[in-house]
């Protein structure tokens, strides 16, 4: 279908973009890669009167190592994220999850900030954001403010962004040494949205005898409610879980690990499995064409176990 008419402003600076947004109020939408917005316009699910194109602003694009965190400019494309040595080294979970977003052509255009601001509960990156306690930098004509991931995602397709405000960057705190990462996603076809997804980071300690235990865990859930969720009960219960020896070392943080086959759990896995069985607590999954709420709860438990197991195996 053809989108309804709108005015188009290609902003030459962030300052100009927020001024146009301030004048237009709720009638305006920010355009960057357009990979979420254009389908909405084509299906006439959105009718903005003006699109403010920020897709060519160099100040919004690119990845930087800023010591304690990785700075990701809002219009950095998924493809750039996957290829970024800074992302792979500083926040490998972001690279792993991004490699599962849509398909190569969409990843060439779609942006990191765009998929956050779109806030689809089936989007992969918001769950990573809550798992890693990312910080969101928002700008308007009145200045800049920073909100945490849990405060940023407020409801179904809703964020803390006010009319007139633009997401300029996301800061991803680095977790440091000893962490393993995995994003486990269940979907109907290769490039489809997640029916459920689980982002996991696990810090592993290895004793002198070679025994491996979970020291700390982070778990974010995709599509288990109107917003991404942090599975705090799983995180607490997973601490001290004994891990099996690593059969084959895998390249830490390589996006290819996202496609590892699932591990068969038994014996020392049990504490981890018990922890994963708490994954659907405090969730409110929806029913749609692809899954009932009960099925999503089942998936959350199974996928959380897989995600924790794979994450730990990469350390």
């Amino acid at each position: 279908m053809i989108p309804a008419s709108f005015d188009y402003v290609r902003a030459s600076s962030v300052d100009e973009a927020v001024e146009v947004l301030a004048d237009a109020g709720e009638e305006a939408k920010v355009l960057s890669g357009g990979q979420s917005l254009l389908p909405l316009l084509r299906l006439r699910l959105a009718y903005p009167s003006v699109l403010v194109d920020v897709g060519r602003l160099p100040e919004l694009r690119g990845v930087r190592d800023e010591g304690g965190h990785v700075h990701i400019g809002a219009t950095t494309t998924h493809d750039e994220i996957i290829r970024s040595p800074v992302v792979r080294a500083g926040c490998p979970l972001v690279a792993l999850a991004t490699a599962t977003v849509a398909d190569p052509a969409v990843r060439h255009r779609g942006t990191f900030g765009g998929s956050m601001a779109h806030a689809d509960p089936a989007g992969d990156l918001p769950a990573v954001a809550v798992a890693l306690d990312m910080e969101f930098v928002l700008r308007s004509t009145t200045g800049e403010r920073v909100v945490t991931a849990t405060d940023f995602f407020t409801d179904y397709l809703e964020t803390a962004l006010e009319p007139g405000e633009i997401l300029t960057a996301v800061r991803v705190p680095k977790l440091g040494e000893g962490w393993g990462y995995h994003y486990e996603k269940f979907h109907r076809t290769a490039q489809a949205w997640a029916i459920v997804g689980v982002a996991a980071a696990v810090r592993v300690t290895v004793s002198e005898s070679g025994a491996r235990h979970v020291a700390e865990a982070r778990v974010g859930l995709t599509n288990m409610g109107p917003t991404p969720l942090r599975a705090t009960a799983v995180e607490s219960a997973a601490v001290d879980a004994e891990l099996p020896p690593v059969p084959h070392a895998t390249a830490n943080g390589s996006p290819s690990t996202a496609r590892l086959p699932s591990a068969n759990g038994s014996g020392p896995h049990d504490t981890l499995r018990e922890a994963a069985s708490l994954a659907d607590g405090d969730t409110s999954p929806t029913a749609d064409l692809h899954a009932t709420p009960d099925y999503r709860r089942h998936l959350a438990r199974v996928l959380t176990h897989r995600a924790l197991t794979h994450a730990a195996a990469t350390v």
Binding site: M1, Y8, R10, L31, G34, Q35, L38, P39, R42, L43, D53, G55, D79, A102, D103, P104, A105, V106, H108, R109, Q191
Partner: peptide
């Protein structure tokens, strides 16, 4: 398609693949 799924409209834009149904001409 009308949902960015099928890829039939894939072209190269500045050397990389894009789905041309999901790009505005002005972009």
């Amino acid at each position: 398609c009308d949902t960015s799924n099928c890829g039939a409209c894939t072209i190269m834009m500045d050397g990389r693949s894009v789905k041309s149904c999901s790009v505005l001409a002005v972009q």
